[in-house]
C-alpha cells in the first residue's frame, strides 16, 4: 500500500489546479517537487474522480492530450475548492524552516518572516515543540550586510577571527549569508586574498560601507571555506572531558581510548585554528601527531610563562 503519498498530493493538486485556469506541467512538477511524468500520472487518476453518481458531469474533467502534448493543464468540474489542513508534522516543519530564515535575515525580511510565522502558528493553535538558535551575530551587522548585498556594495569588516586569534579588517565584496551547522556565515570575495572566504556572522564586530561598488566574481563554490576539502590533518589524544571536540568540529575520525579518552583526527584548514584549540584544551591533551602541529601552541605557552617572571 503505497498510494498514501499520491492521495495526499491529489487532495492538494485539485484545489491547486482549480485556482489556476491554465498551468504548465513543468510548473506543477516544480511546485510539488515531483517529475513531470508523475504529474501526468496524477492527472490520469483525477479524471476518474469526482462527485458520487458516476454520471459524466460528475467527474473531474482534464484534457489529457493537451497535458501530454502541449504540457498545459486545464481542469473543470472541481469538487474540492480548498486544500486539506496542515498536519501537525507539516505545520511544524514549515514554521521551523521559516524561523531559520528569520534567524539569518535582516530588517524587513526578518519582519516578513515573523509575520509568516505568526500566521502559520495561528493555524496550528498549539505551542511549537521545536526551538532553533542559530549563532547569527548582531542585528546591526546583519542589517548592514543585507543592505550591502542587496545594493552590490563593498564593505570593510572588523573580524574577530579565531584562526588568527586577533582582529582583522578585511575588505570584501559580500555575496550571501549561509547557515551551516548552526552558525551563520557571510560568503564574500576577500580582496586581499583574491579568493572566496566565509566569515562567521557572530565574529563580525562591525561592517562599514567603503563607498565602493562590489564587483561580480561569479558564483562562490558550495560550502566555501569549510574543512571538507582540506588535505592536512592532526591527530589529538584527549581526556574524556574533551570529547566534545568530536561533536563540535567536523572530525575525520574518532576512536575511543581504553581509559575513556578519545582520539580525534581533525582536518586543519588553518594552522592558527589548531594552535588556538590546543591552547584552549591545555591539560586535556595527551598527545599530538604530528608533534610539529603543536609547535606554535607550545611556543605560545612558553612565552606566556616567560612573561610571568
Amino acid at each position: 500500500m503505497t498510494a498514501a503519498p499520491q492521495v495526499a498530493r491529489l487532495l492538494i493538486l485539485v484545489p491547486y489546479l482549480q485556482q489556476r485556469e491554465y498551468v504548465d506541467v513543468a510548473e506543477v512538477a516544480a511546485d510539488f517537487n515531483i517529475k513531470p511524468r508523475q504529474v501526468l500520472d496524477d492527472l490520469q487518476v483525477l479524471v476518474m474522480c469526482g462527485l458520487p453518481g458516476g454520471l459524466p458531469d460528475d467527474l473531474i474533467e482534464i484534457d489529457l492530450d493537451l497535458a501530454r502534448e502541449e504540457g498545459l493543464i486545464h481542469m473543470r468540474n472541481s469538487p474540492l475548492t480548498r486544500p486539506l489542513r496542515f498536519t501537525r508534522d507539516e505545520a511544524v516543519s514549515l514554521i521551523v524552516a521559516v524561523e531559520a530564515v528569520r534567524e539569518v535575515a535582516d530588517g524587513p525580511t526578518a519582519q516578513a518572516a515573523q509575520s509568516v510565522i505568526d500566521k502559520l502558528s495561528g493555524l496550528m493553535g498549539e505551542a511549537l515543540p521545536v526551538r532553533l538558535e542559530v549563532a547569527a551575530g548582531g542585528d546591526d551587522v546583519r542589517d548592514r550586510l543585507g543592505e550591502a548585498i542587496d545594493q552590490g556594495l563593498q564593505v570593510r569588516l572588523t573580524y574577530d577571527g579565531l584562526a588568527r586569534r586577533g582582529t582583522t579588517t578585511p575588505v570584501v565584496d559580500p555575496t550571501r549569508v549561509e547557515v551551516r551547522d548552526g552558525a551563520s556565515y557571510l560568503v564574500a570575495w576577500a580582496l586581499d586574498r583574491g579568493d572566496w572566504r566565509s566569515y562567521r556572522l557572530d565574529r563580525i564586530a562591525d561592517a562599514e560601507l567603503t563607498g565602493q561598488p562590489a564587483k561580480d566574481h561569479g558564483a562562490p563554490p558550495v560550502a566555501s571555506g569549510s574543512f571538507e576539502d582540506t588535505p592536512d590533518t592532526a591527530t589529538l589524544d584527549l581526556d574524556a572531558s574533551a570529547a566534545w571536540v568530536a561533536e563540535y568540529y567536523p572530525v575525520r575520525g574518532v576512536t575511543a581510548l581504553p581509559d575513556g579518552g578519545v582520539q580525534v583526527v581533525l582536518p586543519v584548514a588553518d594552522p592558527g585554528f589548531l594552535t588556538g584549540l590546543i591552547l584552549r584544551l591545555g591539560p586535556q591533551i595527551r598527545f599530538v601527531d604530528p608533534p610539529s602541529a603543536a609547535a606554535d601552541a607550545l611556543a605560545e605557552a612558553r612565552a606566556f610563562l616567560g612573561q610571568l617572571d
Partner: peptide
C-alpha cells in the same frame, strides 16, 4: 518533504509562488 507538502497547500490556497527566493540567504538546518 513535509515542508514541501505544507507549501503546496499554501500554493493550492491561491497564493502564487512566482517570486524568486531570497538569493542572498541560504539557511540550512
Amino acid at each position: 518533504e513535509s515542508t514541501t507538502r505544507a507549501l503546496t497547500k499554501v500554493w493550492a490556497s491561491g497564493v502564487e509562488p512566482d517570486i524568486d527566493r531570497l538569493g542572498a540567504l541560504r539557511p540550512h538546518i
